[in-house]
Structures are given as C-alpha cells and as structure tokens.
Amino acid sequence: MTSVPRLEDNRTESTLGTPGYRRFVLWDLDHTLLDPAGFGQRSIRSAFSELFGFPSPDGVSVAGRTDRAIIAEFIAATDPALTDRQDEVQELAAEIAERTRSEFRSRGGTTLPGATAAVEALGSRGDILESVLTGNLEGIGRIKVTELGLDKHLDLSSAAFGDAHTVRADLVAHARDRAEAANSTRFEGRSMIIIGDTPLDVEAASAHGAFAVAVATGKYSVADLAAVGADAVLPDLLELDLLLTQLDV
C-alpha cells in the first residue's frame, strides 16, 4: 500500500459550525469515480459539428480541465469569431447528452473499482458532506452520476460543474459557498477535501488550502501526482482502508 500522511483535524466551532458537518469532500468524476467512456466528449464534439458544420480539432488536452475551457479552445483553434457562440455549444451538448444518455452505460460508462464502496463508506458518516467538483457540464455530469446510482450518496445541490468557469480552481469556492449556505456550516482550509486524478485537481485544492487526495486512476502516475504536491496519493480506490485512515474516519 502507498504510505500517506493522515489529515489533521483542524476543526473549530467557529469554522465548522455546530451542529453540522465537519468535513466537505468533493469528488472528481472522470477517471476518479468513473470511466466516462468518452460520453461527454462525444456530446460536445457532436454539438460543435452540428452548430458549425465542421469538426472540432484534435489534440486538445482535456484531463482535469473544465468543459468550458475545452470548448473555448476548440473555438479558438478553428474560428475565434465564433467565441460568442460558446454557450450555444454548451447548451446543445447537454441536450445531445440527454438524448443519448442510454449510450453512456451501453458504450462502457461505469464506476471504477472501489469507487462506490468509497463513496458509501464516507456517506455512512453523519459528519461528512460529499459532493462533486467536476469539469463536466452540469447536464453531462448529472447523467453520469445518476446513471451509476452515485446520486444516492452525493449532495448534488452543493456540486460544482464546469459550465461557467475555465479555471478548475474557481469551482471550489462555488461548491463551498453552496454547501455553507445550505448547511449553516463554514468549510475552510483542510476541512475541505478534494479527491481527483490530475494535477489540476491538486492545484484546485492548493489554491484554497484544501486537503488534496490524488488517485492514480487516470493518465497520471503515483509519482506524477506526488511531484505536484498532493497531500496524499493512492494507487486506486480499492485502498479503502488507506483512504479512511488518512482522512481519520
């Protein structure tokens, strides 16, 4: 097993409120909790082609980025004059995803090993609020979560999706503000835990002083994720005991 430091419990009554949740866990979706099987990218690329009459460019990096940032780069690489139609692409992509939602699972969309058990284990605690922080457009992300039954354990009212921001770190404050407003509880610093598979997940956590748990279930290795400063790195979510120990739960 990979050795990681345990999260110190720095809660105080003033920062976390009483009664209420003492930690706020934000899960990434693609390649952390689930294998998207290209579902979101198919929807976005189909929308792009349908609107503009030519295909979106290849070679655009997507790992850890918001869909808004990816679409913006598609437009910049093909015809910058179309920048004001970004929202149209996003809206149509969400519509296409809804029309084709059955293809998500039929074409390979599935939870990653250990993911459901990890979410359930944290959700069984009454003092941990779990939600989602993902670069997915909201319509696409919600389909993935609900189709896989993860919505039973994740508070999507506190989730942050990639519709409005091009910088992933900006999503953290959005999720935190929603969670605090709904629960009359303040989440600051390391009472927030961000779990993801890319350096951009780690960067987002660091920007807000949150505890970054990186999982090497995507394109980045344990060494890659440790090198960018993750507080803890796991090879996968099958290491449930290690995850719970490191979170001190």
Rank of each mutant, 00 (worst) to 15 (best):
G126Y: 09
A97P: 01
G229M: 09
L237W: 07
G229W: 03
P5C: 09
E138P: 03
D30W: 02
S56K: 04
R68E: 03
A175Y: 08
D35R: 10
D58K: 12
G108M: 08
R186I: 07
R125D: 12
T116D: 07
L150R: 06
G162W: 15
G53W: 07
H165G: 01
E239S: 13
I143N: 00
I70V: 13
E130I: 12
A63K: 13
L150Y: 03
A181E: 12
A94N: 00
D84M: 08
L244V: 00
G40K: 01
G126R: 13
S43W: 00
D79R: 12
A63V: 08
T12I: 13
V249G: 10
A175N: 02
S191G: 12
R68M: 05
S14A: 15
G209K: 07
R142I: 12
E203V: 06
S184A: 14
N10F: 08
L238C: 12
L122G: 07
A175V: 06
T78P: 01
F74R: 01
A63D: 14
T100F: 02
T134I: 07
F48R: 03
R22L: 09
T110D: 14
G196D: 06
E13N: 09
A210L: 06
L240T: 05
G53H: 08
A175F: 08
V172Y: 05
R11Y: 08
R168W: 01
E103N: 10
E130H: 14
T134C: 07
A207M: 11
A226H: 09
R105S: 12
P5H: 07
R101H: 13
F74K: 05
V215H: 06
A230S: 07
L137M: 10
A160V: 05
G229R: 02
D28N: 15
L240Q: 09
A169L: 11
E239T: 13
R190G: 09
P80G: 09
H153M: 13
F104I: 10
S106A: 14
R190W: 08
A94P: 00
D35V: 10
S184P: 00
F24T: 00
M1T: 13
E180V: 05
R186F: 11
L137G: 00
V213C: 06
A77W: 01
E95K: 11
L16N: 15
L243S: 05
F24D: 01
D224K: 01
T134P: 01
